[in-house]
Amino acid sequence: MREHVELDPDVDDDAPTGNDITPYDEQHYITYLRLLDAKAEGADWNEVARIVLHRDPVAEKERTYRCWQSHLERAQWLSREGYRKILEKAVAEGR
């Protein structure tokens, strides 16, 4: 049975760090993909933070920027290295 994927989840101030895929990462794959797409399109981080991360860059510019940066860095890690761990886990679970 397929798990429900939330398309626009709220986010924590900081994305996970480290070399393991976390439940938070699994809940936010769509968020990470949206951030990567926005970066590739050259979108303004303020707009991306407002739409994707549900943050107000006018009211809390530094906090919002750190949130955006943290999640973008995690998304980039997942696209460079972390996806291998996802594949390894799927193989181990026989998916």
Rank of each mutant, 00 (worst) to 15 (best):
I21C: 03
T22F: 12
P23K: 10
P23W: 08
Y24R: 11
E26N: 08
E26H: 09
Q27V: 01
H28Y: 06
T31F: 04
T31L: 01
T31E: 04
Y32P: 02
L33W: 07
R34E: 12
R34V: 04
L35A: 04
L35K: 05
L36M: 10
D37Y: 11
D37G: 01
A38S: 14
A38H: 13
K39N: 11
K39T: 02
A40N: 10
A40F: 03
A40D: 11
E41T: 04
E41S: 10
A43Y: 03
A43M: 10
W45L: 04
N46W: 00
N46T: 03
A49Y: 05
A49H: 00
V52N: 01
V52K: 04
H54F: 07
R55G: 01
R55E: 14
D56K: 11
D56I: 03
D56A: 04
P57E: 08
V58Y: 14
V58Q: 15
A59W: 06
A59R: 15
E60T: 09
E60I: 02
R63P: 00
T64N: 08
R66D: 13
R66L: 14
R66C: 07
R66T: 12
W68H: 15
W68S: 05
Q69S: 15
Q69I: 12
S70C: 08
S70G: 03
H71S: 08
L72R: 09
E73I: 00
E73R: 15
E73V: 00
R74C: 01
A75G: 07
Q76D: 08
W77S: 07
L78P: 00
R80P: 00
R80E: 10
G82A: 09
Y83C: 05
Y83R: 07
Y83A: 06
R84I: 03
K85R: 11
I86K: 09
I86V: 14
E88A: 13
K89N: 12
K89P: 02
A90P: 07
V91T: 12
V91G: 03
A92E: 15
